[in-house]
Design a protein around this nucleic acid. Structure first.
Lengths: 201, 201
DNA sequence: GCTATCGCATGATGATCATCATGTCAAAGA
DNA sequence: TCTTTGACATGATGATCATCATGCGATAGC
């Protein structure tokens, strides 16, 4: 690859990094092309050499951010039961540190309510990333999971995302911490409700 | 009350209604004073006779919206167990209709991720309203609930909010519907995990 | 070495928006 | 009836922002 091409590739990488941080910290609108480019060490004019418009950047930054999120959250495969896995990953996700670190936190949670207002291309991207995260959680393609496990995984993700979002939306740290704890406990229980009870729902 | 005062009161009411709709449909920034005032049948200049700035409007609209939300969601007291109540209210909350009606839907869910980016006055208001909703759910002051019930209520609200938000963020209607169903099932189970299991957590 | 290319910078442009200044007119109070 | 008040309208003002036009300078291919 020519040196110019690698330069451009590196610039693009830095832009996506900066955009990912801004996206999670400031939301979809809170980005600002000039601010992102400046954080990437460039000026606003260079933007259109990399992306055709802001929406395209936003989608790419979302993908980029969630790949990082999944790598850090899911880590390497473990020897554990489904129930253990749900409990362990919930405790790893619902921490005070995750709540407070905005710039590199889970983009699904950081954007959950704003995503609904995005255009359909953005929502398609969001959905794809959610499905990838579900597959990572299940350690296999989400579409091939047995129905009950798929439903568990969906409710589980909704609980994690909702808990983290609420814990940030709230003003008092004490309530935020209690939310995290209550959410993690409930998430750990999603895997093992009494089976006979679940059969005749 | 003088006729002028009632006029003003009615104007204020219409502004709050319009702002509540815009808040839930377009988010905190998506409001736009001119648009809100025009929907209230006034022009933008009249705004500052009612509120000192946009932030104040936003907070008041949030309170107004959530009062309506609670009235419609919780309805009249019922003769039912805690478990039954959680199941019934989850099914009432997590419907396709609620997902699609943006303008008058639950403001807690509509703003859950953006609220984190609001100023501290906004987050205080959000927290107060969340606590009122929790009290309504518990049919008594949230602060006086037994710890386990309080934790259940917190996780339950997080699950409802997260499920509704995700179901809107996603592009495909089928996945959205499945999320609602899985969320409602899981929410109904929050109340009755095996007690001995819960005791030695 | 010469020239074309292209990544990037600088500086418009036009749109949107919150807020303010000023004017108007009807109702309140004397 | 006359004056004052205040709810509302109209029309700036300045800030922010996405997008575009233009120019530069280094690199790549000849």
């Amino acid at each position: 690859m020519s040196s110019r091409a690698t330069q451009k590739q590196q610039s693009r990488e830095r832009i996506l990094e900066a955009a990912g941080r801004h996206l999670r910290t400031g939301g979809i609108d809170g980005a600002g092309i000039a601010a992102v480019m400046s954080e990437a060490g460039l000026t606003h004019g260079a933007f259109y050499a990399h992306f055709s418009n802001k929406d395209e950047l936003t989608r790419n930054a979302l993908v980029h951010a969630l790949e990082q999120n999944r790598a850090r959250w899911l880590g390497k495969p473990q020897r554990e039961s489904w129930t253990q896995r749900l409990g362990r990953l919930a405790r790893r996700y619902l921490t005070g540190a995750h709540r407070q670190s905005r710039a590199d936190s889970c983009a699904l949670a950081a954007l959950c309510s704003e995503a609904a207002r995005g255009d359909s291309a953005f929502r398609r991207t969001y959905e794809e990333e959610l499905l990838k995260s579900l597959s990572g959680l299940c350690e296999g393609p989400f579409e091939t999971q047995p129905p009950q496990r798929g439903d568990d995984a969906l409710a589980y993700m909704a609980l994690l995302v909702g808990t983290l979002a609420l814990s940030r939306a709230v003003a008092s740290p004490a309530l935020a911490e209690r939310l995290l704890k209550a959410g993690a406990d409930a998430a750990a229980r999603i895997g093992h409700a009494d089976p006979e009870q679940r059969a005749n729902r």
